[in-house]
């Protein structure tokens, strides 16, 4: 108690950020109980009737369930897997480049797309893939001779468009951490390997590459926890009525029925959102448990 009183100045500093977190993070968690009620704005949260799992069941039984959950997992897993190797390759490439100037240029240029906003990124994608005039559309038409190619209207390639533009934008940024790890690898390991007659490639395979694995695992765990809440903004921006079949994900669906529609229905979309958050929590716990059982790095 005395300790707490002595630290009052620390608490004073801490009060503002704590208040923000409580008001805008924990209060919504409390408010998420409207997922179990028939929420009426006029009545308020506690006076709205309790209906248990009604909204959850409605979602599980709806036509949208399979499609929306499937798309969410599909896009996330695709992105997760596609985004693992490239930052590692880039980092190894940068680390093995001896010319300092080229090394700097390579880093500078590959980091740059990270700073492009999601809206602009979506704009770039739509411009490059525009029917007739888009750069990529023209290139594909030039090769295959296909006429009337409209890539964004083709729901079968939506996931690829999303994922590979993501790889283009984030690879440089994601390589930063790997590059830093490589530069901190004990040089005596390399010296010893050179004495033993190891080639450059062998040194990369047996010294540099293994040094990156623990971090790659941690990042994988972290990303698995985020698996259900990725990409709301970008998916929403790239969506159109023609690719909706494969582009509607949980968060965009929640947004549409909850906030973008005129019917004031908050309980049903809240239930879907809560379901998604809960699955995310289970996922991160599961992956972390598996990783720690395997003797690899763990988060806690």
């Amino acid at each position: 108690m005395q300790q707490i009183r002595r630290a009052w100045q620390l608490y004073a500093l801490f009060a503002i950020p704590l208040l923000i977190i409580i008001l805008f993070r924990y209060l919504p968690m409390y408010g998420a109980q409207i997922a179990f009620r028939d929420y009426r704005v006029a009545k308020g949260i506690l006076a709205s009737p309790w209906v248990g799992g009604k909204h959850f069941l409605k979602f599980f039984r709806s036509n949208a369930f399979g499609r929306v959950v499937g798309n969410t997992f599909g896009i996330s897993l695709y992105a997760l897997i596609a985004s693992i190797p490239f930052p590692i390759i880039l980092a190894l490439c940068v680390n093995s480049t001896r010319r300092k100037g080229f090394r700097k240029t390579l880093q500078m240029v590959t980091y740059a797309p990270y700073f492009i906003s999601t809206v602009v990124m979506a704009g770039i994608i739509l411009q490059l893939l525009a029917p007739r005039t888009g750069l990529i559309t023209q290139a594909i038409v030039g090769i295959t001779g296909e006429t009337n190619l409209n890539i964004m209207a083709d729901s079968s390639v939506f996931k690829s468009v999303y994922v590979w533009s993501e790889v283009w934008q984030k690879t440089g940024f994601n390589s930063i951490i790997y590059i830093a790890i490589l530069s901190s690898v004990d040089p005596s390991l390399h010296e010893a390997a050179v004495v033993d007659g190891a080639s450059l490639l062998q040194r990369i395979r047996h010294i540099d590459f293994p040094a990156l694995i623990p971090t790659a695992v941690i990042l994988l765990i972290l990303n698995c926890g985020q698996i259900l809440n990725i990409g709301f903004e970008k998916v929403l921006l790239l969506q159109n009525s023609l690719n909706l079949q494969s582009s509607e994900i949980i968060s965009t669906y929640v947004y549409k029925i909850g906030l973008a529609s005129s019917a004031l229905n908050f309980s049903y979309p809240s239930a879907i959102g809560l379901f998604s958050s809960a699955v995310g929590l289970v996922m991160i716990a599961l992956v972390n448990w598996v990783a720690s059982r395997l003797g690899e790095e763990s988060l806690w």
Binding site: L18, F24, R25, L27, L259, P269, S270, G273
Partner: peptide, 23 residues
């Protein structure tokens, strides 16, 4: 406790709709 309170919000959230209602 406070560290946990902060980091927990990184892996779990109340969702878009409840946050909107709070705001």
């Amino acid at each position: 406790f406070f560290t946990f309170l902060f980091t927990f919000t990184m892996i779990f959230s109340g969702g878009i709709i409840p946050t909107y209602l709070v705001v």
